[in-house]
Structure formats: C-alpha cells, structure tokens
C-alpha cells in the first residue's frame, strides 16, 4: 500500500526530492490554511465568472447550476473573490462560525 505523505521516511525519497508524478500538487490540501471561508447568496449571481478569474488559487469552478463556487479542498480563504464580485454574492465567514 502506498505510504501517506507524513509516513514517508528519508529513505523513501527520490534523489533530490524529485517528484516523478506530474500534477501531484492537486493532491496537496491547501484548504486547511484557511481561517475564513466564502459563503454564497446565488440569488444575486449573474454568472460573470470574475471571481474565478481573480482567484489566485484557480480553485473556483461552476457548479451543476452554473454558479461559480470555490473548491474548499484548495481554497485558502483569501477573500479576493468576495472583494471583486460586482454583485456582492460572496461573504467571508470565520471558519469557527
């Protein structure tokens, strides 16, 4: 069975920590860096997609209804989407809340 990333020993690493699997960054959860998360009032959404363009993580895609929504596995909670949304769809709330 493949070892989990935090079970790897120094002997398991490739020379110079070379990563031989392309695109493996997708497996890395950056969502746990987040202190705030975006919430949506889709009634106001005009599906312009500006939030997805501004998102520095590139983690905003369209859901089944065509609304733009961030993937919380990667979303770091920076709030740029909330700031840029022209119709004020997105509100940032504390993760504890």
């Amino acid at each position: 069975m493949k070892k989990l990333e935090n079970e790897l020993t120094w002997k398991d690493l490739e020379i110079g920590c070379i990563v031989t699997e392309p695109g493996s960054t997708r497996e890395y959860r950056t969502g746990d860096w987040r202190s705030q998360r975006p919430t949506y009032d889709f009634k106001k959404c005009i599906k312009c997609g500006l939030c997805s363009i501004y998102c520095p993580e590139g983690c905003i895609g369209q859901n089944a209804e065509g609304y733009f929504q961030s993937n919380l596995f990667w979303c770091k909670g920076c709030g740029i989407c909330s700031k840029e949304c022209p119709t004020k769809v997105i509100s940032m709330v504390n993760e504890e809340a």
Binding site: T9, W10, L13, C17, I18, Y28
Partner: peptide
C-alpha cells in the same frame, strides 16, 4: 518530473 518542489514541515526534515 518536478525538481525543487515545496516540502512542508512533515517532509523537510526527511529531505
């Protein structure tokens, strides 16, 4: 291959 990647705390010591 990717070289010189990001190594968070859980792997930097091993590296």
């Amino acid at each position: 291959v990717s070289m010189g990647c990001f190594a968070p705390t859980f792997i930097y010591t091993e590296a």
